[in-house]
């Protein structure tokens, strides 16, 4: 079934490819081109110029990283200090995002929470890349038993609604940040394994891989030296996109009371804590952490799209 789709979508790109690309190729062959890194940077600059949103996403990403690194040093209030007299105050000059039910400063808590959410996202994505990405590449390249085992594993995980499985894993292993990371990585495993598998599989019999065999490269060296570098861009795009999903997943778990526990500042918990006040009009408690969550995920998604544009060889001339 999947192969049929792939054949269909990857079929020869018609008018655009044949006519325009031939023309563009003819034009570009004349222009002397820089190579390697310089070309990538040039191309990145072009993509950003063509689509300013991507530039915006990069800037936003820098801001998030900054908050994660030095956020706790910047905030005006102690994120854990409650001031019962100032509970449930709407946003003001003193408390930019208002205060929550026990008088903690929402702004400080939102900023401080960046680090925790960012760390969860980065480490779970790194973990799943190591597990799923490598397993998938090996499955696609070697085929046979490796493929069957990885495929079966991915199928089993996919048979669960992913969030439900993450819930189960965290509940079983215990409520810690570490287990949230593991659960998020596990539920993303099939996605990575499948992408890496199909990318490795299409290249398995590619001319340059056969040529590498003729040059005396062993299979393992081909996997590392020829296949993996060609799959990396696709995996990086995927990592950027799943960063957003990882954050949502972690926040969702906290929201239903699994994972990070109060009073830790974490966006999901903060939304959960503010949820009850939404119906009585104290919107700011849940709104600002929710907004932060959304902005972060939005940023990672835009970034993923931008990276895809930068790495897409079809858009390079």
């Amino acid at each position: 079934m999947m192969t049929a789709v792939r054949k269909l979508t990857s079929g020869k790109r018609a008018v655009t490819a044949t006519a325009a690309a031939a023309v563009a190729k003819a034009a570009s062959a004349e222009a002397k081109q820089p190579s390697g890194l310089a070309a990538t940077i040039n191309h990145a600059r072009y993509v950003i110029a063509e689509n300013p949103v991507t530039g915006f996403a990069f800037a936003l990403f820098a801001l998030i990283v900054l908050c994660a690194l030095i956020g706790p040093l910047l905030v005006p209030h102690d994120p854990l200090a409650s001031e019962t007299t100032a509970a449930l105050k709407p946003p003001s000059w003193h408390h930019w995002f208002g205060t929550d039910q026990i008088g903690r400063d929402v702004f400080s808590r939102v900023i401080v929470a960046t680090r925790l959410d960012f760390v969860i996202a980065v480490s779970s994505v790194a973990l799943v890349f190591l597990m799923g990405g490598l397993a998938g590449v090996a499955a696609g390249f070697f085929g046979g038993w490796t493929d069957r085992i990885v495929g079966r594993l991915a199928d089993t995980i996919m048979a669960f609604p992913l969030f439900v499985l993450a819930m189960g894993i965290v509940a079983a292993l215990g409520n810690t940040v570490q287990n949230i990371v593991i659960a998020t990585a596990i539920v993303n495993f099939p996605l990575y394994a499948r992408i890496a598998r199909s990318e490795a599989n299409v290249r398995r019999e590619a001319g340059f891989v056969q040529a590498a065999r003729l040059s005396g490269n062993g299979e393992f060296r081909i996997l590392l030296g020829q296949i993996l570098p060609n799959i990396m861009p696709i995996m990086i795009v995927q990592m950027s996109l799943t960063m957003g999903y990882a954050i949502l997943n972690a926040a969702g778990l906290s929201f239903i009371g699994l994972g990070v526990r109060p009073p830790t500042a974490e966006w999901g918990i903060m939304v959960a804590e503010g949820a009850a006040f939404m119906v009585s009009g104290e919107w700011w408690i849940a709104f600002f952490p929710g907004l932060a969550l959304m902005v972060a995920v939005f940023c990672f998604n835009l970034l993923g799209d931008g990276l895809r544009d930068i790495f897409d060889p079809q858009r390079r001339t």
Binding site: G244, L248, A251, G252, F255, G268, V271, A272, G274, A275, M278, V279, G281, W283, A286, F287, G290, L293, M294, V295, V297, F298, N301, L302, D305
Partner: peptide
């Protein structure tokens, strides 16, 4: 992009509000 970035519980709360 905005739709996929919205935490589903957050959307729900905003709609309720």
């Amino acid at each position: 992009t905005a739709g996929v970035s919205l935490p589903v519980f957050f959307t729900g709360l905003i709609l309720v509000y």
